[in-house]
């Protein structure tokens, strides 16, 4: 690849690494709060890609920012709903481990 794209490669690599870290956390952790952390990390990684490529292409920064704002609003909704569910789970189970929430098992 050209030297010119090195910074773009840097930022999209960062986005990729953050996404992979999020996947790792989502698979390996059992604490519900850590799962929320992983999801937030993955969402941030996704937003980063929009901005990185818009900054590289130079023309579509406004579209990228709109996409980012929509993603952030969705993330806010997700965090609010998830955290309230976690608080409720904590109230019922006195702990926040995923494995304990299996009443619905057939």
């Amino acid at each position: 690849m050209m030297v010119m794209e090195l910074n773009l490669i840097m930022v999209s690599t960062l986005s990729m690494i953050l996404f992979v870290i999020g996947v790792y956390g989502l698979v390996s952790k059992r604490n519900l709060l850590r799962l929320i952390f992983s999801i937030e990390i993955m969402i941030n990684a996704a937003t980063l890609n929009f901005v990185a490529f818009a900054a590289y292409l130079g023309s579509s920064m406004s579209v990228a920012q709109i996409a980012g704002v929509i993603i952030i609003a969705l993330a806010a909704a997700e965090a609010a709903a998830g955290l309230s569910l976690i608080l409720e789970a904590h109230r019922l189970r006195k702990d926040v481990v995923v494995d304990q929430l299996r009443e619905m098992k057939g």
Binding site: V20, I21, V23, Y24, G25, L26, V27, S28, K29, R30, N31, L33, I36, F37, E40, A79, A80, L83, I86, L87, H90, D95, V96, V97, D99
Partner: peptide
Amino acid sequence: LILFAVILVGESRTPEPNVNRIIGATAA
């Protein structure tokens, strides 16, 4: 919000098993 929820809920009593780390790393 996350920090407040973390402070409210506190530390989880069950430790994370180490096997999960390997599975997670593989998936990653």
